[in-house]
Design a protein around this nucleic acid. Structure first.
Lengths: 237, 237
DNA sequence: CCACATCCCGCCGGAAATGGGGAGTTCATA
DNA sequence: TATGAACTCCCCATTTCCGGCGGGATGTGG
């Protein structure tokens, strides 16, 4: 298996187009002999970037029904660090069960394993294997391959990030120390007056920092600026 | 090496106290024959949780000098997905060079390799190996062990998360879909009027969501609420 | 040495957000 | 079926923020 995994990793590393990603998911499916393999990058507007072997009908259905907003796989993995066996997630809500039934109707297997991957700026992606199997068989499969799948998931994500960055070179503006301190204070809930007191400067001066930070960040208002500073990793709360 | 790595992973998995983490970093140092090994969880107030083999004098110095705010290792790794060889980071700023010199004076090696690890709710940690070596020797070391180190880093972080959650069960408040949508709109720079228009509701209604979200998040104002929603991973920008 | 960035301070008018209050509907789950 | 949570709408007075304008002092890097 080791050698085949290496070859698979090489093929991921060589990916430069969406089709290559598609091919890589298919190779993964072939290697692990599962029903489906999917890598997708999740953000607030839905899927930003993805490739996988799910039937088109299911993908369309998923997006059309806005399942993204209720999918326990997405939601559950978003809250945890370790990969998740689908059976361990919370399917108690009604829409979730409806979705699951719908998924099975579209040819998905009853078992799944999703590896959450996180990148800078709150980037979040899932690498998922789906299969039809008994619970204990699937648990054994995960136990054997979990570690390799994590490596694979990270490799997919690394290439996806490169891919995206290639599209639109993200220029993270550099803020001055005072500007950063101002953003940090605001992110911690301080009012301008409090923040100014914290930095031992006049409120007017603080405003200058906030404004210049806003301009550098291309933000529309203070809240936007703080949000951008946070999600671009300039400040940590 | 495989067997020794497994034993090391077991010892990480068995960790329940800070001392256990400390021991695990020492075992890692012994296994890889490097000068220092550190795992630390980074947030805005500095180190939240950490264990490692750095001399106490250096840790104190680091905190006292507020090096956290300028450390290219922290900053660089926070911006990237892949682990970083210290030599590849940006040491151009003067304070960064001063810090590096200071570090060498405190017994650190000239080479380093830091694996960024990200968890839910914007959690961020670094797993670092430090050593004294020639550039090419170090590059070879990384090439051989990079994958194992990633696994190890994730294992450290998994236990650290369990540890923290045990200490104070982090209650991430659950926002309603509308509240989330409101936070999302604000985080994207929308004014209240625009956000209300986006959600096709009156501005007054939008305000109710913002306020209830603020209360749930324990935030002092709207900006704070958005910051918390972002850094707790409730919304993605 | 000069330029550029950073750091600090001030004023203004208009626009937006805040923090209270109350009141009705729908929907899911218990 | 009832309880609670979510969703929707409205008013008012006060505070805060916004986006310009102006100025000067102090550094570091080329």
């Amino acid at each position: 298996m080791g050698n085949r995994l290496e070859r698979l990793l090489d093929s991921v590393q060589a990916a430069t187009t969406l089709e290559d990603f598609q091919t890589a998911t298919e190779k993964t499916r072939a290697l692990y002999r599962v029903r489906h393999v999917v890598y997708h990058w999740v953000n607030s507007e839905g899927e930003r970037f993805g490739a996988g072997t799910y039937p088109d009908a299911w993908v369309d259905r998923y997006l059309a029904q806005d399942y993204l907003r209720m999918d326990p796989v997405i939601f559950g993995c978003f809250q945890r660090f370790t990969p998740a066996n689908w059976k361990d997630l919370d399917w108690s809500s009604k829409p979730a069960r409806v979705m699951l039934h719908d998924a099975l109707d579209h040819g998905l297997g009853n078992q799944g394993y999703s590896v959450p991957v996180r990148g800078p700026n709150g980037q979040f992606a899932l690498f998922t294997l789906n299969h039809e199997a008994e619970d204990d068989v699937w648990a054994g499969f995960i136990a054997r391959n979990g570690r390799d799948l994590m490596i694979l998931a990270h490799e997919f994500n690394r290439k996806a990030l490169e891919f995206e960055l290639g599209e639109a070179a993200q220029t993270v503006p550099s803020l001055s120390p005072r500007e950063l301190a101002a953003m940090r204070a605001l992110a911690m809930g301080k009012s301008r007056a409090q923040a100014a007191a914290d930095l031992s400067i006049s409120e007017h001066t603080l405003r200058v920092y906030i404004e210049s930070a806003r301009h550098k960040l291309g933000a529309l208002n203070t809240t936007h600026a703080v949000a951008r500073a946070l999600s671009s990793g300039l400040i940590i709360v």
